[in-house]
């Protein structure tokens, strides 16, 4: 599904943090995980994913480091930091509030798991 870019831009960092809160991943894994976990509703263009990761890294919300993957290849793994977890909690609370508001407006048609 195609979303308005501003809409996706707003939630993409939260989505990435949420996925990473389950364990460290490298870029490809992350993009696959987003698609799977969102039932392929959310797809993050590759041109968006890496700048987003670097920005989160700059804000110290995630941390990247090179490691050897199971295939024996070097991959850059990203993991959520303490600050990232705090930020995720904050953003999730805000989204919950937003969903509540939106539900009231749309008559309970929107729910956040």
């Amino acid at each position: 599904m195609k979303f308005e870019s501003q809409l996706l831009k707003g939630v993409a960092p939260v989505v990435v943090l949420e996925i990473l809160s389950g364990g460290q991943m490298y870029g490809y894994e992350l993009s696959q995980a987003i698609e799977q976990r969102s039932g392929e509703i959310l797809t993050l263009g590759k041109g968006t994913l890496y700048p987003l990761l670097y920005n989160l890294e700059a804000k110290k919300l995630v941390q990247g480091k090179w490691e050897t993957a199971g295939s024996g290849r070097k991959r850059r793994y990203y993991s959520i930091t303490g600050s990232g977890k705090d930020e995720l909690a904050k953003q999730k609370a805000q989204l919950k509030e937003l969903t509540t508001g939106l539900n009231l407006v749309f008559g309970g048609a929107i729910a956040l798991a």
Binding site: G27, Y28, E29, Y50, W66, R75
Partner: peptide
């Protein structure tokens, strides 16, 4: 390295 790894994985 990261982008090429991404291509490899894809």
């Amino acid at each position: 390295a990261e982008l090429k790894a991404h291509f490899e994985d894809e």
